[in-house]
Design a protein around this nucleic acid. Sequence first.
RNA 1: GCCGGGAUCGCCUAGUGGUAGGGCGGCAGCCUGCUAAGCUGUUUAGUCAGAAAUGGCUUUCGCGAGUUCGAAUCUCGCUCCCGGCGCCA
Length: 432
Amino acid sequence: MLTTKYIRDNASAIRTSLEKRRSGYRFDELLGLDAAARRLTTDLQRLQAERNKETIAVSEKKKKGESAEGEISALKIVKESIGRIEGELGAYQKRIDELLWGIPNVLDESVPTGMPPEGNKTLKKWGEPKEKKTGTHEGILAKLGMLDMEAAARVAGSRFYYLKGDLVLLEQSLSRYALDFLSKRGYIPVLPPFMLRKSYYKGVAPLTVFQDALYKATESDEAKGERGIEHIEDELFMIGTAEHPLAAMHSDTTFAGKELPLRYAGISPCFRREAGAHGQDQKGIFRVHQFDKVEQFIFCRQEDEAKCFDELLRNSEEIWQSLGIPYRTVLLCSGDTGHQMARSVDIEGWFPGQGAYRELGTCSTAKEWQSVRLDIKYDDGGERRYVYTLNNTAISVQRSLACIVENYVNDDGTITVPDALVPYIGKGRIGR
RNA sequence: GCCGGGAUCGCCUAGUGGUAGGGCGGCAGCCUGCUAAGCUGUUUAGUCAGAAAUGGCUUUCGCGAGUUCGAAUCUCGCUCCCGGCGCCA
């Protein structure tokens, strides 16, 4: 469970990591609020002890049939004091919770200190990047009549799209290919809820994500008013990735050690507000509000973290190798590693139309950041420990389509289907 | 969406305003030729004191408010589960 006690116990590691991230997180404010709240808690507990003692005295007198008016009027005063302190404590608790749930993960030691892009470290390159003068994916696909951004913008807004014709079949083929690929390696396919309660979402992503990345899916205030509901605390949010419902799936669980590692392949649409994104990403289907993704997720023992991380990364690399896409892997530096992650490696595919490597997925370990918040432990015979959670994209479909299209476009504008996908789509070329 | 029934410690269960009790299981210890049985303690989270062992206190009956000197128990709201009706791809 996430408590200020847990934070105090890990304070020095957290402080070091915050400095390494150059985070603006207000750690001292949290510790100060917590110290003040604990002083109040001590006062409160002293009064509660008094109340309990006197209440028993009242109870015993009443059983004997004696009057307890003196005790009762004394207790009324205690009650007032308790109420006052509880009110103060509640105000503290609200501010503490806001800070507590947003505290960034402790970075792994191997994460290089620095800011992107120069701080990031390329680990590996695979394949031969080709030069192509055929343009970017949105132009290629629009010419084939398979992509209509304008109509989507009219009916839903920018960053939405209509896919049409064989491109839809290719889209579905990619998802199914990734699912089969992982299934053969022991990953259990999961189709999760596409919405999550806020109380569980807090366990898988920091609160800032709610403000600039997620869509809220709760009924309107008017509808709630008609039903006579003043407020629903546990609002629903559309998932930003299957990682989130997969992590939450085993919340409040203690595994037997031998059940781990537990491997899942989640498939879902992903919904993201993408506030603030700009530049090259504004075109086409590289960065959109809604996309499909197959996600790898592992729950493991702490000592198996490195092994599982390598396995997740290898799976993705082999998928891209099997699709013939040149890529590189990049270890993210401290300034670029996501808030709730301890270590991340991006896989970047070659986009000939842009002449650049662009992110296709991210392999991350959250260590115990998520399991502390969701209360997921394992019992190996000794002390119970928090499970480590790791995740990696298998295929982020729309983005991958863009990459495949740019790499596989022919001079006549048609697109060759990668060999691995031919059995799924039933043809070797689309666009004619 | 409507009507009814339900949620108590890891599991089962008692408790209808007055200190949450019993059984099973788990863990630690005692006893023991071995096993079983038996006995004792422990089995939510937090806080204070202490170097620590440990001790004190608070908290915990699905969740959140309220009434009360005192709530598992009474009132209101919410969530989930079971049964029935309705609607529906």
